[in-house]
Amino acid sequence: MSIYENLVMQTQMNYSRYYGMYMAGKSPYKNSNKVIPYKEQIHIFAKQIQNAECIIVGGASGLSASGGGNFYYEDNESYRKYFKPFADKYHFKGAFAGMQYDFDTPNERWGYLTTFLHTTQTAPVRKPYIDLDAILNGKDFHILTTNQDTQFVKLYPEEKVSEIQGDHRFFQCSRQCCDDTWDAVEPVKKMYEAMTDGTFVPDELIPHCPHCGAEAFPWVRGYGNFLQGRKYDHEYQKMSKYLEKNKNKRLLFIELGVGRMTPMFIQEPFWHLTGTLPDAYYVSINDKYNLLPKEIEEKGIVIVDDIAKVLGDVRAVLEGGLE
């Protein structure tokens, strides 16, 4: 097991032990009560970027949501833009609701999966990601993400991104008959173009495993039998190798948009590493939760505000435009 995956496994046990506290939006750790004005926080963040020798970015769902990818949990304008036929027909209240629905036919199920995957595969890079890219310009960095929406891999080569929760560009066998993943982009494009009434995929286009003939399924955690094989291990190895190589340098951890359902993948490992590595610093941006363990309050800040706004302001400071 890689270094970083081991950290995740440890924090998952903590999550199970204090599940009720997490669901209440809290943390089992004693929280800092340090208060720093917003403008000062922005300048601290910018200074940490400048001083860092290496940066690890942890990108979670709140990052994509801040740029318009907020259609997963609610029936809003963004959801209706991409999923209107399903919202009208099935009355889903957000994209994730359809991922759990028991459709009458595989044709309808694949109509929904196709819409879901096509929406993220073809989405342009959202502005918060563009601002983050400008902030990271010229720095040595690695990306760790629980997002499956392909935003980071549209910006960076595969070796700079660890996608530990899967990727909408790949299929796996729904039965896990083999340790194999394969391209989903071209099949999704064909299914999307062939969908009748916007909700139904023809029989002949439904993807199947090339090894056993079972239906394929997106290579993503959360909706089915997520394949934790070679590709999964490789994603963790990329992160672990970067961490091992740079652990004694001035290392900045940037956490973006972690909620209370998945603190074990990014947030709590970042807390642990900030506390144990000699020259580490931690910056979190979150529009809901002000969580910073007291034991690392001198080595970190939490900026409670809109992620898109904060990244835009930090970019402006670094480019000399914000007083």
Rank of each mutant, 00 (worst) to 15 (best):
28 P>R: 02
119 T>P: 03
16 S>Y: 11
62 G>C: 02
285 I>N: 01
113 L>E: 12
308 A>T: 08
321 G>N: 11
168 H>C: 15
93 K>Q: 13
65 A>L: 00
250 R>W: 03
192 Y>W: 09
224 G>W: 00
131 D>E: 13
268 E>R: 15
202 P>V: 03
43 H>I: 08
23 M>V: 11
209 C>S: 01
94 G>A: 05
290 N>F: 00
54 C>Q: 13
267 Q>P: 11
156 Y>I: 09
231 K>C: 12
286 N>M: 03
237 Q>A: 14
312 G>T: 11
269 P>R: 03
122 T>R: 07
81 K>A: 07
63 L>W: 04
87 A>C: 10
137 N>H: 15
141 F>V: 11
143 I>K: 09
241 K>W: 05
293 P>I: 07
144 L>T: 12
152 F>W: 10
216 A>K: 01
35 V>W: 05
112 Y>F: 12
99 M>N: 11
171 F>Y: 13
42 I>D: 01
118 H>G: 01
4 Y>L: 04
287 D>E: 12
136 L>S: 09
59 G>T: 11
297 E>F: 04
165 Q>Y: 09
281 Y>F: 15
226 F>A: 11
223 Y>T: 15
72 Y>C: 08
13 M>P: 02
30 K>P: 13
32 S>W: 05
124 P>V: 07
297 E>R: 09
133 D>W: 06
245 K>N: 10
223 Y>E: 15
44 I>R: 11
229 G>C: 05
296 I>N: 04
40 E>P: 02
17 R>H: 12
118 H>L: 02
